[in-house]
Design a protein around this nucleic acid. Sequence first.
DNA 1: CTGAAAGCGCTAACAT
DNA 2: ATGTTAGCGCTTTCAG
Lengths: 333, 333
Amino acid sequence: MRKQDITIYDVAREAKVSMATVSRVVNGNTNVRKDTRERVMKVINRLHYQPNAVAQGLASKRTTTVGLIVPDLTNLYFAELSKGIDDIALLYKYNIIITSIENRLMREDQAIQGLLNKQVDGVIYMSDNLPEEAIEAFKRTDTPVVLAGTKDSHSEFPSVAIDYQKADTEALNLLYNDGRRNLALVLGNPDTVVSAENRIPAYKKFMADHGLGEGHIYTNIKDHSDGYNLLSQLEQDGIDGVIVSRDVTAVGILNSAIDAGKKVPEDLEIITANATQIASVVRPALTAIRQPLYDIGAVAMRMLTKLMNNEEVPEKQIELSYEILKKQSTTNE
Amino acid sequence: MRKQDITIYDVAREAKVSMATVSRVVNGNTNVRKDTRERVMKVINRLHYQPNAVAQGLASKRTTTVGLIVPDLTNLYFAELSKGIDDIALLYKYNIIITSIENRLMREDQAIQGLLNKQVDGVIYMSDNLPEEAIEAFKRTDTPVVLAGTKDSHSEFPSVAIDYQKADTEALNLLYNDGRRNLALVLGNPDTVVSAENRIPAYKKFMADHGLGEGHIYTNIKDHSDGYNLLSQLEQDGIDGVIVSRDVTAVGILNSAIDAGKKVPEDLEIITANATQIASVVRPALTAIRQPLYDIGAVAMRMLTKLMNNEEVPEKQIELSYEILKKQSTTNE
DNA sequence: CTGAAAGCGCTAACAT
DNA sequence: ATGTTAGCGCTTTCAG
């Protein structure tokens, strides 16, 4: 059996209409008389006709496909964002081409170009690392782009995220109210927009405002074992409260503390800034900045559908609200 | 700037060759003289020509796109499989269209049909729930399919997985050697091929072989809270050792035990059968059947590339080796 | 080694 | 309401 043996032409012949009419009924065009529509439908069903989306795409210049650019699918942060995107995409009948860029073989701008070559109708970019080449690639095209769970420096692109500075400040304040004075910030890549322009400035400002000195910012701490190994350094620096950008990293610190016989939160308070499922299943459960990841994805995709339809989008920089989930890794006084 | 302003025709004109020749150099056809190739390349670069993949797909009947069908991206089991698939896909220059079927709006066979309409060159199916309509949809097409991390009842389709029966038996044996006699099996959907034809028979056989009676099989225990709530039942039934099909569920049981003041492994031994990252970051770390998820995905995708090229694939039912990772949720005597 | 020409399967004016 | 006719941008014989 062939991949595609029957075409719109076969249906037209069998139903004794032109292919234009078949096309109309397939696309739900109302300008078809009821009985011809039914006749055509009957033939479609009998022949099991299925439109070739590639041909449709070439002819109509719309592929009903959106591209997703994501650093790493096994990072639940992105997986949860993706789920929100996926659900809305399904609702609006878009397919998703996913491209992960963590792999060294794939640069950001190449990923974008690949998606553009496939003629996607729009793209959602989820990495908080948006290099110059990527920005230029986006500017060269008129295919709409939305950033999800991240922002760009100059707010050139539509985005959906939270107010990272406010969230971090609030988290630092929680630590401060618990009596902690030696506060640290643990980051992965320090050069991303979220780190460099949001978390770090918020941290520095907080420390200055409260007369806590320079503080300690640890960078390039990216996974569980990095976190695990960081503990001795934290001890050495006398840290008693820490904000960690990624939750598996936070869990690494937590496990390291437990294994070393330290008590959390008594000896060290931990707050994770990007909570996923993992933050809540470890014990003690991690106090966290809970970003509405699913919603961020969903809102981003919804905005993209509007952009793809050239609809009005008054607010292009959307900030959703977060909450600070007080769990067991802080005393919450 | 247009989505696609320059076509192969523009390049042909500028380079003073026919579009056939441009097509040849774009596709690396060797039948082009070196200097014409270079001349064409220069024009391509000057004009920033990028081939329209949709047009290529229509003309060549190959889209260099594969479809992925996955129940839930936020389940790390599938995310890790996907990563293996993605890396190999990148290597062979395939794009990936991902479809999740967890959503009630999308049935398995609809997902398949949607992918087929998009003219994917192949599909990888990752759900261990393969309903009859899905089987028929696959049979109706000659687009190759590979099952990853699961199997079908009759081994009709190529698949990459592990020997679930052997793995479960080995895990049960570990519990038995630790002196446990009241062994239970905790499953999500009991009607999948992996559950119904592998885990359950292996469990029943083990219980019978060791004179341990009927045992206890708990079904439809799907997430952390299901696991959490199951504990009281386990206690009631006097269970002292349990195999859990999903690791977040296992963590639910574990946390419930901890919160109830029980000791793991002393009071209850836990082994998770589908270990992901989560199994190793909780404390006590979970003893687990470690499936090589990344490799399963990678091997499945590699096999699919061969199938798509009509290459010989002698072994279509591949079983990769697993290992039993002895951690802290068993005494390991 | 290169070009001409016929599609791939469908949409979208434009007629009627 | 329906049919006719050009393409969409590219690949692929088939000639030469």
